[in-house]
Simulated scan of single mutants.
Amino acid sequence: MHEVYINRVAKFLPNHPVSNDEMETYLGKINDRESKARRIVLRNNGIQTRYYALTGSGHPTHTNAQLTARAIEGLFDEHFTAADAELLSCGTSSPDYLMPSHAVMVHGELGNRNMEVNSAAGNCCAGMNALKFGFLSVRSGNTSNAICTGSERMSSWMIADHFSKEVENLKQLEEQPIIAFNKDFLRWMLSDGAAAVLLERMPRGEQPLRIEWMEGYSFAHELEVCMYAGADKGEDGRLKSFSDYRSEEWLSQSIFAVKQDTKLLDRYILTKGVESMKHAMDKHGITPADIDYLLPHVSSHYFVEGLYAGFADAGIEIERHKWFMNLRDVGNVGAGSVYLMLEELVRSGRLKKGQHVMLCVPESARFTYAYAYLTVC
């Protein structure tokens, strides 16, 4: 088995930062009304700026595949070119198409060479699942290198026009033409962007990071769906797929909108996160003293104090000065968030040889968690 090193990290954030006051200019107003949820959600999530692959009038500027390819291009130079890549492993929760897969579309954008590709589907953990596929490939000797990515282009899912038919339908039913909170909530939470890492067997560069281990946990066997799209949720907690609705209902009920059961989120996201984090640390025999930087992907600053308290109660208190986050400035980029945090930490110059970095990614879709433990070389 080979050691695996993250030798390079690169990112691509589209256009320019979008402030809280500008958001509805880009996304539009549903039924020409300001969202009642917007200020409440933004006050709790603590995000001040984010990036959209949109013009100010809501027209797309990049596809998800293009965002990802631009990030990957930042890994290349005269010492490692696109032609040297052996494996491309990409994770996202917002692919441009139902098919073909996201990774093959990114490969098409790169246009580099015949190579193995892997697409990791899901939500926030998709980026970590893509990383683990690359990690295991290099570690096993299947390939000598791997490019792994996490990306999102959620803005195009959230523009007001996608909800116009539902508003018209509500008016016809003589109901209040206001989009339900479980749909409106996420319009003010999600952002666009991409980042990529280069994995190799040998360390090189100024500050390579050795991946010591990766772990993943799913609680879908005991918890129902919390975040979903392309479906609707019944009273029994089961999902009904878009393919089982009439095509006119796709628009009249905004079936493809991203939705979140915020009550389930609040009840389980932290408790299961603490439980899985402790399990991973115990399995590998590490304590909080063995973590110099914690990179937690949290969707909202609302959860930070609760997560810290949960760790403390579980006996794995990680001091707050060790937490490294960029949610306030970059926003919640889902599968790309942990990559973007890592890129910023590496670029900051703070890391020192021998330090340890813990990547911590929760996914609320059906409560999945992923972890990686890195050593600065």
Rank of each mutant, 00 (worst) to 15 (best):
residue 100 P to S: 09
residue 82 A to R: 12
residue 91 G to M: 04
residue 106 V to F: 06
residue 86 E to T: 03
residue 108 G to M: 04
residue 95 P to Y: 12
residue 111 G to S: 10
residue 78 E to L: 03
residue 100 P to V: 08
residue 86 E to I: 01
residue 107 H to G: 07
residue 107 H to T: 01
residue 87 L to Y: 03
residue 97 Y to E: 12
residue 93 S to C: 15
residue 115 M to Y: 05
residue 88 L to N: 05
residue 104 V to F: 01
residue 105 M to G: 00
residue 95 P to E: 12
residue 106 V to G: 08
residue 80 F to W: 10
residue 94 S to T: 15
residue 78 E to Y: 08
residue 94 S to C: 12
residue 95 P to D: 12
residue 96 D to K: 04
residue 101 S to I: 00
residue 78 E to A: 12
residue 79 H to A: 11
residue 102 H to Q: 12
residue 95 P to R: 13
residue 105 M to Y: 00
residue 89 S to G: 03
residue 80 F to A: 01
residue 82 A to E: 14
residue 114 N to P: 09
residue 112 N to C: 15
residue 115 M to Q: 11
residue 113 R to W: 01
residue 104 V to R: 02
residue 82 A to F: 01
residue 96 D to Y: 06
residue 109 E to T: 04
residue 108 G to F: 00
residue 91 G to Q: 04
residue 90 C to E: 00
residue 109 E to D: 07
residue 97 Y to H: 15
residue 113 R to D: 03
residue 89 S to D: 08
residue 112 N to S: 15
residue 113 R to Y: 03
residue 85 A to K: 06
residue 101 S to C: 13
residue 96 D to G: 07
residue 86 E to M: 02
residue 90 C to F: 09
residue 87 L to C: 06
residue 108 G to C: 00
residue 113 R to T: 11
residue 91 G to N: 05
residue 92 T to D: 06
residue 85 A to R: 09
residue 78 E to R: 13
residue 89 S to A: 15
residue 83 A to M: 03
residue 107 H to V: 01
residue 83 A to E: 15
residue 97 Y to Q: 14
residue 114 N to V: 10
residue 112 N to H: 11
residue 95 P to A: 13
residue 100 P to E: 06
residue 104 V to L: 07
residue 84 D to R: 02
residue 102 H to N: 07
residue 108 G to H: 14
residue 102 H to A: 08
residue 90 C to Y: 05
residue 94 S to I: 05
residue 90 C to I: 14
residue 84 D to Q: 05
residue 107 H to Q: 14
residue 109 E to R: 03
residue 102 H to R: 00
residue 85 A to L: 12
residue 99 M to R: 10
residue 115 M to I: 08
residue 96 D to S: 06
residue 91 G to S: 06
residue 86 E to C: 04
residue 84 D to A: 02
residue 92 T to N: 11
residue 90 C to M: 11
residue 111 G to R: 08
residue 112 N to W: 13
residue 97 Y to A: 10
residue 115 M to G: 00
residue 84 D to H: 07
residue 80 F to Q: 04
residue 109 E to Q: 15
residue 101 S to H: 11
residue 96 D to H: 04
residue 92 T to F: 07
residue 82 A to W: 03
residue 112 N to V: 13
residue 113 R to K: 15
residue 107 H to L: 05
residue 101 S to L: 06
residue 85 A to N: 00
residue 106 V to A: 09
residue 110 L to R: 10
residue 106 V to K: 09
residue 83 A to N: 11
residue 93 S to Q: 07
residue 114 N to I: 06
residue 99 M to T: 14
residue 114 N to Y: 12
residue 84 D to E: 05
residue 81 T to N: 04
residue 93 S to H: 11
residue 101 S to T: 14
residue 112 N to E: 10
residue 111 G to V: 11
residue 105 M to L: 14
residue 78 E to H: 11
residue 100 P to I: 09
residue 91 G to Y: 02
residue 99 M to N: 14
residue 113 R to Q: 14
residue 85 A to W: 00
residue 84 D to T: 02
residue 83 A to V: 01
residue 106 V to H: 10
residue 100 P to Q: 10
residue 105 M to K: 08
residue 100 P to T: 09
residue 93 S to I: 05
residue 82 A to N: 03
residue 89 S to N: 04
residue 100 P to W: 12
residue 106 V to Q: 07
residue 90 C to K: 01
residue 83 A to C: 00
residue 92 T to Q: 06
residue 97 Y to I: 00
